[in-house]
């Protein structure tokens, strides 16, 4: 096993990790603010992927415009889900919200099947995004570079927004104590909506990346990134944005290296590996690496 091979695997892991991290951020933010495990979050990845397909391939819009549109679509869908399903049951037990989010998830998947059919569709980016770049022993496509840089830019922008703006301050305050936040004059409905919008925008753009990376999309594609990003968020510590980013990259790297470095027979067990890790972390390190304490422990 050459060092070039390992370097290549690490780059692949970082690409996958970028996507997990983007989706995990939303998971973590939403959990942080209303203690909801939003299972429907993965479906926004699917919606982002199909939006990209429609705008880029069928309408032929330029790529930067498509990326922007995907961010917006993601945000809007996030807002609609929050308003339609989660706001009416705010204050209910946490499990209620989780089950409702499963319901939303299944609903969106099946709306996808209903309107788009379950047939997988090929997804291809324009040639300039498909060019292969060779850096030393490592090769990747230009889209992979775009994925990684967009992810870094958006994460930077998000961290700035959350830590350096008034809205971000309101979001952090609401996450910590909803009642006191209201006493400060913060409109928590708007703050929660903004949180869903931001998290979902990132999940939408992750859908664009998912399509670009794997080349094929179908209405059920949100399941895997959704679930794995949740694992990533738990690894990093649910509720913490830096934790979600860290968890995303760790999971991406671990998964790729698990498959790439172990004998091939083990690679079929990759998902079992991911979820065993989840259960282990929940049991041993319930607050994750950067988390700050978890509710509901009796």
């Amino acid at each position: 096993m050459s060092s070039g091979y390992i370097a290549q695997q690490i780059v692949n892991g970082l690409i996958l990790g970028s996507m997990y991290a983007l989706v995990a951020i939303g998971f973590s933010m939403i959990y942080g603010i209303i203690r909801l495990i939003n299972f429907a979050h993965g479906e926004i990845v699917m919606i982002g992927a199909f939006t990209t397909l429609g705008l880029l391939q069928y309408l032929g819009l330029p790529f930067p415009l498509v990326a922007l549109a995907v961010l917006i679509v993601g945000a809007v869908v996030g807002i609609l889900i929050e308003k339609g399903a989660f706001r009416p049951m705010r204050g209910a037990p946490q499990v209620t919200g989780f089950i409702a989010s499963l319901g939303v998830s299944i609903m969106l998947q099946n709306l996808g099947i209903l309107f788009l059919t379950a047939q997988p569709r090929n997804f291809s980016f324009p040639d300039y995004l498909q060019r292969v770049i060779q850096v030393g022993p490592v090769s990747f496509r230009s889209i992979d570079a775009v994925i990684m840089s967009i992810a870094l830019i958006l994460m930077g922008a998000l961290l700035f927004l959350v830590h350096r703006t008034k809205l971000g301050m309101a979001m952090r305050a609401t996450a910590e104590n909803i009642d006191v936040a209201r006493l400060m004059g913060i409109n928590i409905n708007r703050t929660i909506m903004a949180t869903f919008a931001m998290g979902s925008a990132l999940a939408g753009i992750a859908g664009l990346m998912w399509g670009g990376k794997f080349g094929q999309i179908d209405p059920l594609l949100g399941f895997v990134p959704g679930l794995k990003s949740f694992v990533a968020a738990v690894i990093g510590g649910v509720g913490s944005i830096p934790g979600a980013i860290l968890g995303g990259y760790i999971l991406g790297l671990a998964e790729v290296l698990f498959v790439g470095l172990l004998p091939p027979i083990y690679s079929a067990f990759r998902d079992a590996f991911v979820f065993s890790t989840l259960i282990l972390i929940l049991l041993i390190l319930p607050n994750g690496i950067l988390g700050k304490g978890m509710e509901e422990r009796v």
Binding site: V95, F98, F275, I279, L282
Partner: peptide, 13 residues
């Protein structure tokens, strides 16, 4: 595990 964490863990199972 409790509550929704148990739900997630059993889903993992």
């Amino acid at each position: 595990l409790k509550g929704h964490y148990l739900a997630v863990a059993t889903m993992g199972f």
